[in-house]
């Protein structure tokens, strides 16, 4: 009796230690980002490795906001990510619903095709995409990025949404349809409120994916007006030096929208990510 109790306690301590170790390891880079962003340039290389600089400064933030194009990159990224997330979720919800509820000719092929698009590394398709986009005027434009991000995120998002729709019993819609709703009405009034966690998860996933995408943004857009912030971060790397302070300050600022976004959806997200685990 006593032995098993002690063992249980030890096990639970071990659990917490493991979780703490993971959290520290995962968050440490973020801490370092914050630390460097407030370290004065003069102390960056002179203090050796310290957890916190002896004096801090907001200069980096100041110059990033007032003396660089970062506010513009920021707005660009927000537009691209926001619109991408909204469009992807809309299309993915439609596709996911169809995959979950309907039997139709060519379904297997369609699903297979969508999986195939996920097989190729982005680098391989960049050249053809550029070739396609240039005559359409979609290079050097935010629209082009939105189009390619949306297209690229839809397959995974559709499968994600499908799993959420699969978790909602078909009978609920059938009951609503018998109660006098059209299929669309049943989806809107019954299925949609129940899929909110799934929608939140999909929004969050796509928003982050678009927010941090570098390759397409770098290759398709070269003009300042259409630059997103990951590309913007690279401007701190010059041939002879890297302005770590400003880069990190920009990085911290770039984290903020994602944090705000996740804060807004987190209530739905937690239920969303665990929804598949326990069949209601």
């Amino acid at each position: 009796m006593f032995g098993s109790k002690t063992r249980r306690r030890l096990l639970s301590i071990a659990h917490y230690v493991a979780i703490a170790a993971y959290v520290v390891a995962a968050l440490f880079p973020l801490f370092w980002l914050l630390k460097v962003s407030v370290t004065p340039n003069s102390l960056l290389y002179s203090e050796g490795v310290r957890l916190w600089p002896s004096s801090i400064t907001w200069d980096h933030y100041n110059s990033v906001i007032h003396h660089t194009d970062f506010p513009l990159f920021f707005v660009n990224s927000t537009i691209v990510s926001g619109v991408t997330a909204a469009l992807t979720t809309l299309f993915a919800a439609g596709a996911g619903y169809a995959f979950s509820r309907f039997v139709f000719r060519g379904k297997v092929w369609l699903v297979g095709l969508m999986l195939v698009t996920q097989m190729f590394p982005l680098v391989m398709v960049i050249a053809p995409i550029f070739k396609l986009f240039a005559p359409l005027g979609l290079t050097n434009s935010l629209t082009g990025l939105i189009v390619i991000y949306t297209a690229y995120n839809i397959p995974f998002a559709a499968f994600l949404m499908q799993s959420f729709f699969d978790g909602i019993p078909r009978e609920l819609e059938e009951a609503a349809m018998i109660d006098g709703a059209t299929r669309l009405g049943a989806v809107r009034q019954i299925v949609l409120p129940l899929t909110l966690p799934g929608i939140a998860a999909t929004l969050g996933f796509t928003f982050t994916a678009a927010w941090s995408e570098l390759l397409f943004a770098l290759m398709l857009n070269s003009k300042q007006e259409a630059t997103t912030f990951p590309v913007g971060l690279l401007t701190f790397v010059s041939k002879f030096s890297v302005d770590f302070g400003q880069m990190m300050a920009a990085g911290v600022l770039a984290l903020l929208p994602v944090c705000v976004f996740f804060f807004l959806i987190q209530r739905h997200l937690v239920t969303g990510l665990t929804a598949g685990a326990v069949k209601g």
Binding site: E174, A175, I178, D179, T182, P193, G280
Partner: peptide, 27 residues
């Protein structure tokens, strides 16, 4: 189904989980 004027009781009851008893019945 909506135009047939029939009501159905399902094995799983199919109650709308996000609605109260009253809302379920008045839907």
């Amino acid at each position: 189904p909506k135009d047939r004027d029939i009501a159905m009781v399902f094995q799983s009851y199919a109650l709308y989980p996000h609605m109260t008893v009253k809302d379920n019945m008045s839907f």
